[in-house]
Computed example of a mutant assay.
Amino acid sequence: MKASKLALLASTTLLVAYPAFVCQAQDATVATERFLALDLNKDDVISRYEYDSDAAFAMMDHDRNGRISAEELQAILGPQDHAGVSASERIIGSDIDSDGALSDSELRRSLSFRFQWLDRNDDGNVDLAELRAGLGVPMIGGK
């Protein structure tokens, strides 16, 4: 009887923990892909120049119209849970001309703030661990 209860407990634990494990693995993969795309000189850190670069804008501007829409930003952010801040809501804070999308200059301004927030150790670079820690996390408050 005890063995069957232990087996039931173990299988229930796996069912509950597996989705969280899969989400963490997916987040790690997404962070790694973004990191590799932005680390232009392949020195294992993303400098402010690399983060605030044409590569960052091109990675987001899927339709190549020179603007980042909420849909394009959402594609970068990935699925949002119901409690999370939507891409449209994220754009509002950076959309200076209130046209519902981010221009190159609006995005670069926002990226500059985001880079500073991601650079937790203030060394002027973002490493993979810092990018993973900040992936999908809205900037609220300071460091």
Rank of each mutant, 00 (worst) to 15 (best):
M1R: 11
A3G: 02
A3Y: 15
A3L: 14
K5L: 15
K5F: 12
A7I: 11
L9S: 10
A10Q: 08
S11H: 04
T12L: 15
T13I: 07
T13W: 04
T13V: 12
A17T: 11
P19H: 08
A20N: 05
F21S: 04
F21M: 09
C23V: 11
C23Q: 13
A25P: 02
A25H: 15
A28M: 08
T29W: 10
A31G: 13
A31K: 06
T32F: 15
R34Q: 01
F35V: 03
F35L: 06
F35E: 02
A37N: 08
A37L: 09
L38Q: 06
D39G: 08
D39H: 13
L40G: 11
N41H: 03
N41P: 07
D43L: 05
D43F: 08
D43R: 10
D43E: 11
D43S: 10
V45W: 04
S47N: 03
S47V: 02
R48W: 05
R48S: 12
R48M: 08
Y49Q: 11
Y49H: 07
Y51F: 15
D52E: 14
D54R: 11
A55K: 14
A55L: 05
A56R: 01
F57A: 03
F57L: 06
A58F: 12
M59R: 10
M60I: 07
D61G: 02
D61P: 02
H62P: 00
D63Y: 04
R64H: 14
N65Q: 09
N65K: 13
G66A: 02
A70Y: 02
Q74M: 04
A75M: 13
I76H: 01
G78N: 09
G78P: 05
G78V: 00
A83R: 10
G84H: 09
S86Y: 06
A87T: 05
A87M: 04
S88M: 05
R90H: 09
G93M: 03
G93C: 04
G93R: 05
G93N: 10
S94N: 10
D95I: 09
S98M: 07
G100S: 07
A101Q: 14
A101H: 11
L102C: 05
L102M: 06
S103T: 13
S105H: 06
L107C: 06
R108Y: 12
R108F: 13
R109D: 07
R109Y: 11
S110Q: 08
S110P: 00
L111K: 11
S112G: 15
S112E: 02
S112F: 00
F113Y: 10
F115V: 10
F115M: 07
Q116D: 15
W117Q: 13
W117K: 14
L118N: 03
L118F: 14
D119P: 12
D119N: 13
D119Y: 06
R120K: 15
N121C: 06
D122K: 14
D123K: 12
D123W: 01
G124N: 05
N125T: 13
N125I: 05
N125Q: 12
V126H: 05
V126C: 02
D127N: 15
D127C: 09
L128V: 07
A129I: 06
E130I: 08
R132W: 03
L135M: 11
V137Q: 13
P138L: 03
P138N: 01
I140T: 13
G142D: 07
G142S: 10
G142W: 01
